[in-house]
Nucleic acid binder design. Structure first.
Length: 491
RNA sequence: CGGGGUAUAGCGAAGCCCGGUUAUCGCGCCUGCUUUGGGAGCAGGAGAUCGCAGGUUCGAAUCCUGCUACCCCGACCA
C-alpha cells in the first residue's frame, strides 16, 4: 500500500487534498460538496469538541439543541442577516415522495408542498432568538449562556474537504445579556477562549483582532477574529466571535424589564468554530511524510511496533509491550500496540507517520536483550534509544517537548513570513510572489480595502488588538492612518 | 454560477483520435511458501454493467446529446 503524497513545494493544495484522504481523515461523498468524516478524522474532532466543551462549561455556558429547520419568515426579520446568507441557503419545499409514473424511482409529490418553506440552518441566530423571546422577561432571566454543537449547511460553490464544505460541523454559542458592556465582554471572553485553545492545544499561533466593517458577520455590530498562517503563507480564519448589539433582540422583539423597571432590548453575542479547525491543524504543521499532530489533540499519542521474525520472539515482545503500555497509559496517554502480523515494521512506520502519531516506539529482539526501546518522534523524525525502565517519564517529557516544538516551529514560520511594508510596490510583490502576512497602514475605508483586494487578492484579515498606535500613510491611497492592519491572501 | 479539464477493477493509469476477438498494465486484495530493525520475494487466483441516461450503428470504452460527480481558474464564503 504505497501511499505517495504530493510534495508541499510541488503543489501545496494537492498535497493537502492527498493528505486528508490518505491519512484517512475524510473523503468526498456522493452529494456535491459534502464530506464523510472518517473515524480518524472524527476522533480529532472529538478531541477538539471535548476540550472546547470543557472550556465553555468552565466559563459558565450550557449546551442545548435548536432545530435544523428555520421558517423562511424568520430569516427576513434581520435585514443584513438575510442578505449575508440568502445566496447560500438550502430550502425544504416539500415533505413527501411518490412512485414515479414511469415506474422508475420516486418523484416529489407536488401536492405535498409546504405552506412555508423551511431553510436548512446556515447559522441559528434567528431560530434561537425566536425562542429567547419567550424565555426572557426580566433582568433576572439574564444572562442566557447557551452553546450548541450542530451541523449547518451553506451551499458553497467551491468546496474543499474540511476548509469549505456544503455541510459542516461546528459549535455556536448564543448569549443574551442585560447590558451592552456585558455582551461586549462576553464576545471578547470567548475569542480569548478560542485563542487559548488554538494556541495551547492545536499549537497554532494566531493574531486576534477586529474584522473590518466589510468582513463583518451579517447582523453583527462587531466581529472579533483570530487569524493563523498556513505553510503556504495564506491566512486562515478558523473562528469568530460576534457582538450582535440589539439587532436580533429588535428583530425578534426580545425585551426585558430592568432593575429600574424600564423595558429594554436584550444585548447579544454569538461565536463559533467549525471542522475547519481540522484543516488549519493539517496545514499549519504537517509535512511531506504526512500529518503532524500536536500531542494534546492526537487521538493516539504513542504507537508501539514490535520487530520480530519468530512467533516466540513476538510473544516475548508482546509481554514486554504490555508492561510498557500500562506504564505510559498511567500517565494519561493513549497508547496503541500495533501487533498486526499482516504488515511489516517498515510499512507500519510509514503508516503511523502518515497519520501523525506523535511518538513511535519500536521493540525488537535486541531491545529485549538490552532492556531498551527505540523512540522516534514525529515532529523531527529523530530516533533515540532509551532504557524501558523509566520510559513513561521519557515519553511524558517528550510529548510536552513535541507540543512546544510544534508551536514554536509554526510561530517561527509566521514571524519569518510577516512583513512590515510601507510601499505599494513591495506590498504587491509580496502578495504576488512570496505570500505571507503584511502589516501595513490603511486609511480605514471600505473603498480602499476593496481596491486592494481587487488588485492583489489580499484582504484585511484583522485590525490587530495589540498593534501599536503608529501614524503613517495608507499603503494604497496615501491618506493618513493611525495603525497598521493585517493583510493576507486568505482561505 | 462562468471558463477549462477529468471519469475505464479498491487505487493509479493505457486503450478512445481512426468503432470490430475474451478490455491491458502497475499497486492493492485472496491462497500458499519464504520473509520481518524503514513501505518484502516468488508462485497461483479473484475482481470491470468502461460515471449515469439516451442516441447513431450489423457492432460503442471508442462517435453524438443530456445529466451527475471530482479537479483547476474566477465571483462568493467559516
Amino acid at each position: 500500500m504505497a501511499k505517495e503524497l504530493t510534495k508541499r513545494d510541488e503543489n501545496y493544495s494537492q498535497w493537502y487534498n492527498d493528505l486528508v484522504v490518505k491519512a484517512d481523515l475524510a473523503e468526498n461523498s456522493a452529494v456535491r460538496g459534502s464530506m464523510v468524516i472518517k473515524p480518524y478524522g472524527y476522533a480529532i474532532w472529538e478531541k477538539i469538541q471535548g476540550q472546547l466543551d470543557k472550556m465553555f462549561k468552565e466559563t459558565g455556558h450550557v449546551n442545548a439543541y435548536f432545530p435544523l429547520f428555520i421558517p423562511k419568515s424568520f430569516f427576513s426579520k434581520e435585514a443584513s442577516h438575510v442578505e449575508g446568507f440568502a445566496k447560500e441557503c438550502a430550502i425544504v419545499t416539500h415533505y413527501r415522495l411518490i412512485n414515479a409514473e414511469n415506474g422508475k424511482g420516486v418523484v416529489v409529490d407536488e401536492t405535498a408542498k409546504l405552506e412555508e418553506e423551511l431553510i436548512v440552518r446556515p447559522t441559528s441566530e434567528t431560530i434561537i432568538w425566536n425562542s429567547y423571546k419567550n424565555w426572557i422577561q426580566s433582568y433576572r432571566d439574564l444572562p442566557i449562556l447557551i452553546n450548541q454543537w450542530a451541523n449547518v449547511v451553506r451551499w458553497e460553490m467551491r468546496t474543499r474537504l474540511f476548509l469549505r464544505t456544503a455541510e459542516f460541523l461546528w459549535q455556536e454559542g448564543h448569549t443574551a445579556h442585560a447590558t451592552k458592556e456585558e455582551a461586549q465582554d462576553e464576545a471578547m471572553k470567548m475569542l480569548n477562549v478560542y485563542v487559548d485553545f488554538v494556541e495551547n492545544y492545536l499549537a497554532i499561533p494566531s493574531i486576534k483582532g477586529d474584522k473590518t466593517e466589510n468582513e463583518r458577520f451579517a447582523g453583527a455590530l462587531n466581529t472579533y477574529t483570530f487569524e493563523s498562517m498556513m505553510q503556504d503563507g495564506k491566512a486562515l480564519q478558523a473562528g469568530t466571535s460576534h457582538f450582535l448589539g440589539q439587532n436580533f433582540a429588535k428583530a425578534f422583539d426580545v425585551k426585558f424589564t430592568s432593575k429600574e423597571g424600564k423595558e429594554e432590548y436584550v444585548w447579544a453575542t454569538s461565536w463559533g468554530v467549525t471542522t475547519r479547525l481540522i484543516g488549519a491543524l493539517i496545514m499549519a504543521h504537517s509535512d511531506d511524510n504526512g500529518l503532524v499532530l500536536p500531542p494534546k489533540i492526537a487521538p493516539i499519542h504513542v504507537v508501539i511496533v514490535p520487530i520480530y521474525n519468530k512467533e516466540e520472539q513476538l510473544r516475548k515482545i508482546s509481554e514486554k509491550v504490555t508492561e510498557i503500555k500500562r506504564k505510559i497509559e498511567s500517565k494519561g496517554y493513549t497508547v496503541k500496540y500495533d501487533g498486526r502480523d499482516t504488515y511489516k515494521p517498515g510499512w507500519k512506520f510509514a503508516e503511523h507517520e502518515l497519520k501523525g502519531v506523535p511518538v513511535r516506539l519500536a521493540i525488537g529482539p535486541r531491545d529485549l536483550e538490552n532492556g531498551t526501546v527505540e523512540v522516534a518522534r514525529r515532529d523531527t523524525l529523530q530516533k533515540s534509544t532509551h532504557t524501558s525502565e523509566n520510559i513513561d517519564e521519557v515519553i511524558d517529557k517528550l510529548l510536552n517537548e513535541i507540543q512546544e516544538n510544534i508551536y514554536k516551529k509554526a510561530l517561527d514560520f509566521r514571524d519569518k513570513n510577516t512583513y512590515h511594508v510601507d510601499s505599494w510596490e513591495e506590498f504587491q510583490d509580496i502578495m504576488n510572489n512570496k505570500g505571507g502576512f503584511v502589516m501595513a497602514h490603511w486609511d480605514g475605508t471600505t473603498e480602499t480595502e476593496l481596491k486592494i483586494k481587487e488588485e492583489t487578492k489580499a484582504t484585511i484579515r484583522c485590525i490587530p488588538f495589540d498593534a501599536k498606535p503608529e501614524t503613517g500613510k495608507c499603503i494604497y491611497s496615501g491618506k493618513p492612518s493611525k495603525q497598521r492592519v493585517l493583510f493576507a491572501i486568505a482561505y
